[in-house]
Nucleic acid binder design. Structure first.
Lengths: 233, 233
DNA sequence: TGACAAATTATGTCTATACATAATATCATT
DNA sequence: AATGATATTATGTATAGACATAATTTGTCA
């Protein structure tokens, strides 16, 4: 059997993880001190520290100074979601990407939009409605509001060629992103755009981004019927 | 101004992150070598390494040995979701948690369920249907299949007292968890349980867990009308 | 017994160093 | 110009040591 000369922190993490999975430690149990794990596995404490930090990040254990490390009593399912730009998403699924600009105009946002952006003083935003296509079939209908204070350059972009989604993601990196998922019943207009019937259940992704505290954009993306969002790994 | 004597890796991460946000580096650009960043910020290379690893994990940059570190050309929105056990979710929202077992029986799973669990040989599973309540109002309807090979102890549990959700999460930690989100139209029976009308758009969370390759459970949780799932931070 | 101060302890973090590894660049050879 | 061996380089990772920090325990005094 192959014994690596040095133990990586991922090895340590997996060892501890397995010990928990196997029932050797159950929720609430206290794990040995990092230093003890280190000496029993014959590695440095910093290696164990890195491993335990990862387990803590993933929600499996809780660590407190002086208190030690405990298996979480109240485990959470912590999952990572990857939401690529829509063009990539379509292409990754093997579709041919298409894009249609529906409408673009500066207007006063409703209260809901201001609230989502956490803006206090009302001001005109650029509203962009667009349809993403996969193999010429409707894929996602987006209703977007862009903050012109934060992203004034958007006015110089021809949004019938490049989607706002794409331009923003390449040119306005964000420091904070809020996501929200829910289901809606399609209204007449939405159903029409997405090629379905009014009343159909549709999956919605809402995303709002900021640079520090400055709002960039908020978008409500209504997906075509049957759309599913999966976790990455 | 307060200058901390030593720079933490999170400080380094934020500094680099800010440099990217400010447009100093745009997608595709190559960042300086870790060692150079280290000397320019006056910290150790390992500190920079830890920072860059985090930026790489969060999808903002890409690192390749010898190739160096580049700002990702194709940024993804990477978000972390926390899905607590349902009792906690209800309580965190300020509701009083309640639970009703609807039905519990061993039966042959349909093909869809077998596929979700990645099982090849058909065998009887324990099917548990239950309703979670918040302040005596329906909150979530779950339809669960449990693999008796992996979790035989579940048969000794009185599932009218403790929910399968809770027992499994405390007693069967998983090594892999797949999540899936989508929208459905309520059928008559579902609408009835959730106190809404047939045809209502409902948000669905599907979760399947394994210990290594051994399937534990798959559950389809249909949420009450208006339910929204938010990202954690 | 209670309140507060001090010692203890386990995790948190940075540093300097050494070596590993993968990808690229260089250079000699044909 | 194509090939293949070799050197170079940037990241990946572990280690020992030092010190920081927070939480608990212990000790002291009223």
């Amino acid at each position: 059997m192959t014994v690596r000369s040095r133990l990586s922190w991922k090895d340590v993490r997996d060892t501890v993880h397995d010990a928990i999975l196997s029932g050797q430690y159950v929720p609430g149990d206290r794990l040995p001190r990092d230093a003890d794990i280190a000496s029993s596995l014959n590695c440095a404490r910093s290696t164990v520290q890195r491993a335990m930090q990862d387990l803590s990040d993933s929600g499996l254990v809780e660590r407190r100074r002086k208190g030690g490390t405990h298996v979480r009593l109240d485990p959470v399912t912590r999952a990572t979601l990857d939401i690529p730009i829509t063009r990539r998403e379509v292409e990754q699924k093997g579709g041919r990407y298409g894009y249609q600009l529906i409408r673009q105009q500066q207007q006063t946002p409703p209260h809901k939009v201001l609230a989502a952006l956490e803006m206090t003083t009302p001001q005109d935003l650029l509203r962009v409605e667009a349809l993403h296509l996969s193999d010429c079939q409707p894929y996602m209908l987006e209703d977007r509001w862009i903050c012109l204070d934060t992203a004034p350059e958007i006015l110089d972009i021809d949004l019938s060629v490049q989607s706002a989604n794409e331009w923003l993601v390449l040119n306005k990196p964000y420091s904070r992103c809020d996501l929200r998922f829910y289901a809606i019943s399609a209204d007449e207009k939405t159903a029409d755009f997405l090629g379905t019937n009014a009343g159909a259940a549709l999956f919605v992704i809402e995303r709002t981004t900021w640079i520090e505290t400055a709002p960039i954009t908020t978008v409500r993306a209504i997906t075509r019927p049957g759309y599913q969002l999966l976790t990455s790994s």
